[in-house]
Amino acid sequence: MMGTVAVNGEVCRLEDLRLQDFLQSFFFGAGFFETLLVEEGAPMFLERHLARLRESLGAHAGCVHAPPPEVLTPEAVREALRRCLEADASLGPRFTGVAKLVAGDGRLLLSFRSLPPRPPEEGVALQAVEERCYRRGDPTLNHKSVSYLRQYAHLGRGTVFVNEAGELCEVPNGNLFFLVGDSVVTPPLEAPCLPGIIRSVLLVEGRLAGRPIVERPVRREQVGDVRGCVLTNSVSLALAVPRLLGRELPESHALAGHARAVVRESARRNGD
Rank of each mutant, 00 (worst) to 15 (best):
Q151E: 12
V180H: 01
E130N: 10
D182M: 04
E190R: 13
A267Q: 11
E265V: 00
L176Q: 01
Y134W: 15
G156H: 00
L237D: 12
P250K: 07
V204Y: 15
V241T: 07
G137I: 09
R247E: 13
F178C: 05
V235C: 06
M2Q: 15
H60E: 12
E121Y: 10
N173K: 12
C169L: 07
C84S: 14
L14T: 04
R199A: 03
Q24A: 12
P192S: 10
P67S: 00
E70L: 01
Q127R: 15
N163R: 03
G181H: 10
G123Y: 12
R150S: 04
A89K: 13
V171D: 10
D88E: 15
L126H: 11
A240Y: 02
A191W: 01
L244G: 14
L231Y: 03
D105W: 07
A165E: 04
P116D: 09
R269M: 03
V201W: 01
S200M: 06
S145C: 15
S200V: 06
V185T: 06
R247Q: 13
E131V: 04
A267D: 09
G104K: 08
G210F: 03
V241Y: 15
A209K: 01
G158N: 07
I197P: 06
P68L: 10
I213R: 00
T159I: 15
F33W: 09
N8Y: 00
V235M: 09
D21R: 03
H143N: 08
R54G: 01
E221N: 06
S234L: 14
P192N: 10
S183R: 15
G3W: 12
T140R: 15
L179K: 06
G257K: 10
Q151I: 04
H154A: 06
I198R: 02
M44A: 13
N233H: 10
R78W: 02
R199V: 11
R78I: 01
L17R: 08
S252G: 07
V38C: 03
P212D: 02
G104E: 05
V5F: 02
R107N: 08
E34I: 12
F28N: 11
G174Y: 04
L17I: 04
H258K: 10
N142C: 14
R13H: 00
L231D: 05
G3Q: 14
N8F: 00
E121W: 13
S147P: 14
E15H: 09
A66W: 13
N270R: 12
D88M: 09
E39M: 13
A165C: 12
G62F: 11
F95W: 08
A30R: 14
R219D: 00
S145E: 04
E34P: 03
R136N: 08
S56Q: 05
L203S: 08
L179I: 05
V7D: 01
E86I: 05
G92T: 05
D88Q: 07
N8R: 00
E190L: 08
G228W: 02
F32Y: 10
E205A: 08
T232P: 00
F26M: 11
E265H: 12
G62N: 09
L255Y: 13
V235D: 04
S145W: 14
F33S: 04
R52G: 02
E40L: 10
E251R: 11
L194A: 09
C63F: 13
C193Y: 05
E131Y: 14
A240V: 04
L91T: 11
R48A: 12
S236P: 08
G156C: 02
Y152T: 02
A240R: 15
T73E: 02
R157Y: 04
E47N: 11
P116Q: 13
P69N: 01
S111Y: 03
F161D: 08
V262L: 08
